[in-house]
Every structure is written in structure tokens, then in C-alpha cells.
Design a protein around this nucleic acid. Structure first.
Lengths: 185, 185
DNA sequence: AGGCTCATGTAACCGGTTACATGATTAT
DNA sequence: ATAATCATGTAACCGGTTACATGAGCCT
């Protein structure tokens, strides 16, 4: 359901093509939402059919033709309605296959569990670095765009940073407990 | 994809019916995975078709008949294969509609953003309480079941607790930044 | 009388993933 | 030469959600 609003939200900044929307997703929303191009093209078609977007065919000579989508008034209303709507249960539901595995780790031996925790920590350490880079990009941007927007982009990047930090601390705590338990477990 | 392994994992503890598997999901896996009963019944049918489960029809007189599913050897192999498999990209991808909204909050005024952050904090404060209750239940259980299993159940509960704690701290930080920005923004 | 628990599902739909398909231009 | 970029999609499939449907027994 949220891909729809992600697309409307980006198009609220300005008109765009499916191709560029995919790039926008990959570069700025991918921490908390991923989208395949096939899904983006499908969704754009139905948003246009429903009157939330208008489309213009742009013929190009040196490159493939393209379809430029623009938010209609109805589309903007739809987007703002979603944005203002109250938080609901679904906004808090997490799905995490890694934690599902952890839940069943009683079937593995502790060495294997420790190795997996260390791999997990390593991945989040790399993510920390990339969030710092993202934070830098946003600061560069915020000089150019509405700083009121950039403020919230920073909040989401900060969330990602803190999230990975927390995963690392949790993993270290768990590793510690496993190694402690080895002696008198 | 992970519902499959969640079901195999619980059935690895012992045979069960769709009805009871739904309860097991709701009571212990729901923090990181939710499942509807319609989906559970569908999945059980295909797991049996694929030879990962066997099924026994149990006729009852005072209650509706039931189907008791049991893990086959193939099913146990399939489960352990998944459990031992290396972490992949998909194990780290987050989907969070709340953060999607935050990303676009530049379209709202700050008071509204603050109110939503406070609601968010409030919800996670309630979640913190429920995780403490969960941790208690696990400790009660761990006297009865294999403590090596309970250890990992605690890890996932601890993750949930820390996650909500982190959300609260992030929200407070964000509220602070918004209120600070009011004066000289 | 009314609501909860036990116990099963089907049907319609929506959202998301993977693979396939094309083809010119531009940069290394 | 070759790989990347630009730009569009389709098709098949899988996974997940919502609503509908039934019906006995037990508790208040």
C-alpha cells in the first residue's frame, strides 16, 4: 500500500518518469522501502487510471521516448490525506526474517550462533558508515532545497543510523551472554 | 517465504494443528512475524503436498475434527538447511510505513509533526511494558523447556525491547530538534 | 439469549518478486 | 570491444490480506 504514497510523495516534489522514480527510491527511500521497477511501472499505470496522476508522452530522438507523470489535484489530496492520517497498528508491525532465525537457534550449536551474530554485527557496522555518507549528502542538499524538507530526511537517516547502532549493541550483548554461558551452562 | 520456516520450526517442537499454530504465532513470533489463519491453512496444505509434513485426521466427538500436522524427515532437513544458511541481503531489509511518512513531513506543519512523534513515543512506551511481560513468560517457560531454546527466545524479546527503547529515544531527539528549531528556524 | 472457544476452510483480491525482452547511445 | 545508461514494459508467480461461511459446545 505504501509504494503508492511513496510515488505520490516524490511526484509532489516534481514530475518524473518511472525510470527516475526508481532511482529516487533506490537513493533515498531504500532504507525503509524497496521497490522493483516492474512494480513501479504497474503502480504508475493504475495511479493514472485512478486520476491521481496525469501522463505526458515525451518523444526523444537520441534516447528512448519517455512518459512523464505529474501529480493531479486529486493525487495531491490523496497524498496529504495519507500523510495526515493517524498512526495505525500496521505502521508498527515489523517483519524480520533474521529474528525468526534467532528464535529457532536452539537447534544450532553456540559456536554457529556466535558466528552468525558476528556476521550480523559486521553488516551493521558497514551500514553505519553508509548512513554517515547519506547524512552528508542530505546536508549538501539542504543548502539547495527547502530546509524544512531536509530536516525530516535527516530524521529518517538518523533513525537508520541509530537502528544499526542498536543492532550492533544487541549482537554484542548476545555474544557476551553466549560466551559467558559456555563455562557454567 | 519465512512463514514456511516459522511453521516448520514450531512443528519441530511437536505436532500441531493449524488452529494451534496460529495461536503459537500470535503469542510468540508476532513481534517479528504476523500470519493470518487463512495463510497458515494454505501453507500447511502445500507443505504437506511437498512432503515436508505429514497429516493425520483426528475425529473428535464433542469438538470439530482436526488435522494434526507433523514434521517429516524431509521437513526437518528443509528447516535446518534454512536455519544454517548464511545471512543474505533480504534478511536486513526493513519496510516501515511510519518512516515513509516521516520522510514527507516537510508538507506538514511542525506542530502536527510533533504530535505524531509524541503519539509514536506513547505507543512504544506501551510496547516496552508488554516486552517486560513477555520476558517474564519466557523465564517461567525456561524452567520447563530446554533452556538452550529459551535463551534465544530471550534474545528476540530483548531485541524488541531495545528496538522500542531506541524508537522512544529517537522520537524524543526529533521532538527536541523541532522545538529548538522553532525559535531560530 | 449472547458471546467465546474450538476448528476448518474458500474466494477474491492486492502487493511484491523474478525473469524475460528490446535497443540506441555514450563512455572506457 | 564491452559495459553502462537511458527507457520502456510484460508474464508468471508467490505471498499476504480481507471477507465470507459453518456449526457444535460451553460459560454467564
Amino acid at each position: 500500500m505504501s509504494l503508492k504514497f511513496g510515488l505520490l510523495g516524490i511526484l509532489n516534489y516534481g514530475s518524473s518518469t518511472g525510470y527516475d522514480l526508481k532511482k529516487a527510491f533506490d537513493s533515498s527511500l531504500s532504507f525503509f522501502w524497496q521497490a522493483h521497477k516492474s512494480q513501479i511501472y504497474k503502480e504508475l499505470t493504475s495511479l493514472e487510471r485512478d486520476g491521481f496522476l496525469s501522463v505526458e508522452n515525451v518523444v526523444q530522438l537520441d534516447r528512448p521516448n519517455k512518459k512523464v507523470y505529474s501529480l493531479t489535484d486529486r493525487g495531491r489530496e490523496e497524498f496529504l490525506g495519507w500523510l495526515k492520517s493517524d498512526l495505525s497498528e500496521g505502521d508498527f508491525q515489523v517483519r524480520d526474517t533474521f529474528l525468526m532465525k534467532v528464535f529457532f537457534w536452539g537447534e544450532l550449536d553456540r559456536e554457529e550462533a556466535c558466528r552468525k551474530l558476528e556476521a550480523y554485527r559486521g553488516i551493521h557496522e558497514k551500514k553505519l558508515e553508509s548512513y554517515q555518507a547519506v547524512a552528508g549528502h542530505i546536508r549538501d542538499y539542504s543548502a539547495l532545497v527547502d530546509p524544512e524538507k531536509a530536516r525530516y530526511w535527516e530524521f529518517t537517516a538518523r533513525f537508520g543510523y541509530r537502528y544499526s547502532e542498536n543492532c550492533i549493541e544487541w549482537a554484542e550483548e548476545a555474544i557476551h551472554l553466549l560466551k559467558e554461558g559456555e563455562n557454567h551452562g
